[in-house]
Design a protein around this nucleic acid. Structure first.
Lengths: 119, 119
DNA sequence: CTGGATCCCGAATGATACTG
DNA sequence: CAGTATCATTCGGGATCCAG
């Protein structure tokens, strides 16, 4: 993840941090509470474990999420949003609305209906 | 700008559209009202005209901004936010707050003060 | 064996420099 | 100031490793 050195506004720093292909959807999946790697992998279309771990690590570096590692067997790790991550969710919620609107405009209502985003 | 075909949520579509290095800051600069290309170029650190035009075109394709071309001399073009772009600004405002917070945590208050973001 | 994590590498994409 | 070449970064596949 590349962070620029020259910037006009702090928003660019926040943007650099959340700019990857998978970061917003990962945060979004975490909005409902703690969850495991496997769970995330199941719930995010087309992602693979490697990508997931990479992105989670980067999100952790900037305090958007955190993880809890449980001792003993079976091995268990849970990821969850920090307060900052929760504030990020507010921004992502707006993206969600805009995305739905864009899809409706482009005749993709069918896809939206299938996944239960409308109706 | 690459738009994925497989997605879990509409938010990913909105994210794909605003993911470029320059898009959020361009929208942000437009938040205060109509402005010209030259003005944008002046107000955004390290951007060049080519990038700017490219990004503006893409933002226009997805209805985030629009432009108005004035007839006659001198030649004049103004860019401005659409309603969708204005909703996007709400998300970017959250990024701005998070960015300021991140910079404060990392001892970059000086930079913030210089540009008038704090104090 | 299972779940989590790392490494390497080629391909795709994005950003900037160059050039006429 | 548009088109193209170049350089940098991100993404994805697959092998591999570690610990219980």
């Amino acid at each position: 993840m590349k962070i620029r050195e020259e910037y006009t506004c702090p928003l660019e720093l926040a943007h650099d941090i959340t700019r990857g292909k998978w970061k917003p959807i990962i945060l979004w999946q975490l909005r409902l509470g703690n969850t495991s790697l496997t769970n995330l992998e199941r719930n995010i279309q087309s992602i693979n474990q490697k990508m997931l771990i990479e992105q989670l690590k980067e999100l952790m570096e900037f305090g958007m999420i955190d993880k809890r590692v449980f001792e003993g067997y079976p091995l268990k790790v849970e990821y969850f949003l920090t307060d900052r991550g929760k504030r990020m969710i507010e921004a992502i919620t707006i993206l969600q609305h805009i995305g739905i609107e864009l899809m409706q405009e482009n005749g993709m209502e069918e896809a939206l209906r299938e996944k239960g985003f409308i109706e």
